[in-house]
Design a protein around this nucleic acid. Structure first.
Lengths: 148, 148
DNA sequence: CCCAAGTCTAGAACGGTTCTAATCTGGGCT
DNA sequence: AGCCCAGATTAGAACCGTTCTAGACTTGGG
């Protein structure tokens, strides 16, 4: 499961970014969980270790970690952003339309954009999300349309 | 370019959904543009044809069209949702990291989730977005990290 | 013509994120 | 050690997109 240095260890070696207690706690919280947390979930967990940390600091730290390339922001629908500390190897996501749970997945195959479909763009990344229903969330009735 | 009945024509044949002037104008605006509009862009264009239409009605109509399966909501990053009237054939998206422009693309190849990567989920759809820079938006310097 | 159901509207409310201005912290200097 | 100052943190306000609310309006059926 463990692949190389942890997020904290990587951050510790960055000269240009001070690893303050607040930032360390945010990084620990992200790295320690197997789920992908929203900012308020990060705040709640961070406060267990450092009760005086503020929401603004959590947002600052998350945005900085994304800018540093140490964490990935994932849009999961409904406007809620979740943060993924697994930047080590490329992967996609599987999200449950019922409960919103998000996991990393490593699909088979590849998609490529033929030149005719690139419209002159320089393509940097591909982001793919598979959506469906997890075992706990009852599948919707077959003929019903899901409104949300 | 034209594939089958237009959005308006399809809506006209729906018994359960009254095609009011406001709803018609929203559908016309979506169908007539080649770009994928945000709600406020839909409102601006709709007001050219029907100046008294309200923002709430635009949101209502867009949500209803999505629920009906006649329009697709696409998250383009930054929390802004855009609406895609092309539900006829499956496709993916190409978005410019510079200007945010969004186009439909039809990539080659396929991705599949092996059973070991499905975690018991019933997978309904795959959503893929290619991100890069369009010809108008200068590519960022090679060694720089893009902050936003 | 009247009613009921459905639709539209302005404005308030809401929730997540960012901004602001003040305070605090900590490493480098003398 | 004591001082300085850039950078970090904080609470709360502001912001922005979206949804809700309450009332007015429209439409089609009886």
């Amino acid at each position: 499961m463990n692949r190389g240095p942890s997020l904290i260890e990587r951050l510790r070696h960055r000269r240009a970014w001070r690893l303050t207690p607040q930032r360390r706690v945010v990084a620990e919280v992200l790295d320690g969980e197997h789920v992908h947390l929203t900012p308020d979930e990060v705040l709640r967990r961070a406060r267990r270790r450092l009760p005086e940390i503020s929401l603004a600091t959590v947002y600052n730290a998350l945005n900085e970690l994304v800018a540093l390339g140490e964490v990935r922001a994932v849009e999961t629908g409904g406007g809620r952003v979740r943060y993924d500390p697994n930047v080590g190897r490329p992967h996609d996501h599987l999200v449950c339309l019922g409960c919103g749970a998000l996991r990393d997945v490593y699909p088979r195959g590849r998609l490529s954009l033929p030149p005719s479909q690139r419209f002159g763009h320089r393509v940097i990344i591909r982001e793919t999300t598979f959506k469906g229903y997890c075992p706990q969330c009852a599948p919707p009735a077959r003929r019903e349309r899901r409104a949300t």
